[in-house]
Nucleic acid binder design. Structure first.
Lengths: 197, 197
DNA sequence: GTCTATAGCAAGATAGAC
DNA sequence: GTCTATCTTGCTATAGAC
């Protein structure tokens, strides 16, 4: 059975615009906004640089489109994953697993969202940060629902969880633990702690 | 009393080369390798672009110099912090606090190390990754010394800790918790867990 | 050591043919 | 919709005066 992430990543061969977005996501993920060039992206999508400007007004617009799609994919994956689970701890674990699955097995689009945003255009930057914050509020709700006391603890926990999750691309290797196993491991550590003395 | 980080960040007004490195660190941190230009860096340091090439052969060389200095600063801060503490948990907490202090209060150099590395030059990239791994091995040793069983748990713990720490720059605000408080909070969560049921 | 001047090139973006 | 051709700008890097 294909994972949720694999479904989401299936290239849409029907539309040229889909090819362009896929190519842009790959390049932006690997090289960042400044490092990727419109010529490279166009080449990967089987066109010339000028043709891109029929679909997008600017490189910035193309980046925003990729970012939006990344938010859309990871949001819907996480929301699907928590839909049925009733237990608060199980819901958090499912959300973490879905987030990691899209990020590690799914790929390019979501990792553009996680990457440090381009610094050049402050207006765009603020908009993208707002979108990312809205996505992260899913986790805020899940963590607020945990049977724990202390707002400080909740905030620190949320920051620790997001950090642990979003740092995984720097060390993850496909032949190691699966995204689901990593999520389970992280949750265990957070929930029970490791001090056995 | 100035923090350790503040000491390390004191600009060395005596040497022009120090000014260049400081300016490069600021720009590379804020804009990344591709986003920062030699003209901007030179301007910040009070010179013209061409003059930089008296000090450094290339932009890549300049980046490597900043990166090396960043590794040097954060390594020595962490090593100083764990020097005297005997208890393994205390040693880890001290290391986390020092790491965060340099990263959040100290600034530019260390954050260049944490940032996603430039993708253009694979050879340089491998070298810098190796340096970063060597630094992180300090934490590996500290975590191996904890009274915990299971190599898997240790590995996951290390990844969770590094992720939580290195993600802090995306949400840290100077008027919130101090680096030391964040370190204490994270360590408590990891050590004891939060499930009170 | 820093300057001016510029070579050499790659980037984002546009115009108009097809 | 995509192409070719090109404009303009900005970049890294070099050469040589001071």
């Amino acid at each position: 059975m294909p994972t949720a992430a694999a479904q989401l990543e299936k290239p849409r061969r029907d539309s040229r615009l889909g090819l362009v977005l896929d190519a842009a996501a790959r390049r932006f993920r690997a090289q960042g906004f400044d490092g990727a060039s419109m010529r490279e992206i166009a080449g990967d999508a089987g066109m010339k640089a000028g043709s891109l400007y029929y679909h997008f007004e600017s490189k910035t617009d193309l980046f925003i489109a990729v970012h939006d799609e990344g938010i859309r994919r990871i949001s819907s994956a996480v929301e699907n994953a928590i839909e049925t689970a009733p237990d608060p701890w199980q819901r958090l674990e499912n959300a973490m697993a879905a987030h990691l699955d899209v990020l590690l097995a799914g790929g390019d689009y979501a990792r553009v969202v996680i990457r440090e945003l381009p610094a050049g255009n402050p207006d765009m930057r603020d908009n993208l940060v707002r979108l990312r914050d809205r996505y992260e509020s899913i986790f805020r709700v899940l963590i607020d629902a945990l049977p724990v006391d202390g707002a400080t603890t909740r905030r620190q926990l949320r920051m620790m969880v997001m950090g642990a999750l979003n740092w995984t691309p720097t060390w993850y290797r496909p032949n190691g633990d699966t995204p689901a196993e990593i999520a389970t491991g992280f949750l265990q550590l957070i929930r029970k702690g490791i001090d056995q003395t």
